[in-house]
Amino acid sequence: MNIFRLAGDMTHLLSILVLLLKIYATKSCSGVSRKTQELYAIVFLARYLDLFTDFISVYNTFMKIVFIASSLAIVWCIRVHPMVKRSYDKDLDTFRHYLLVAASFLLALFLHEKFTFLEIFWAFSIYLEAVAILPQLVLLQRSGNVDNLTGQYVFFLGAYRGLYILNWIYRYLTEPRFTRWIACVSGVVQTALYADFFYYYFISWKNNSKLKLPA
């Protein structure tokens, strides 16, 4: 494991901790897209089916369990916790996320590394992760103002994707047999989705002002 991959995993973990902290400290999920969180829960459940078949390392297994548990915990908070549930604004969170699930699954049926149950669900999870942030970005854009913790959550998620690209470049240069088209192309698409957000994030950071996205 190289430093980019480790830093990527850590920012990913940090993003989830920031989100949990926001929900826990404010007992509110305002500005958070439940649909994006549900998509991430599906992503982790579909991708880590190999928990039962392949063992890579204690680190991998531990992180997989953390990602599954935390994503389910976040969805549970938004759907079930009485105080958090009240702050959920479903009129802002209208993205038709089931379309993303259907399209990703269809794509996985055609584009995969092997036609096996695990490989199709793995490819599906990669495609779905690439677009899972869309409901969140649309929600932020619609509400205009972004609170600090939600902004940091999206920032760390984007940083995680950027670091994974550096990790692939590093692996491509150092590992002779490193080719991974599905993950890398999807990863670049996913990172590109954050470009707009990052632009406004850096402007607000430079001006030391509150993050605002144009309508």
């Binding site: 991959r5 995993d9 990913h12 392949d54 390392s57 997989k64 990602f67 092997k114 793995w122 994974y164």
Partner: peptide
């Protein structure tokens, strides 16, 4: 030989 497409990333 280790599978070339081993899923060692998260």
């Amino acid at each position: 030989v280790k599978d070339q497409v081993a899923k060692d990333e998260l």
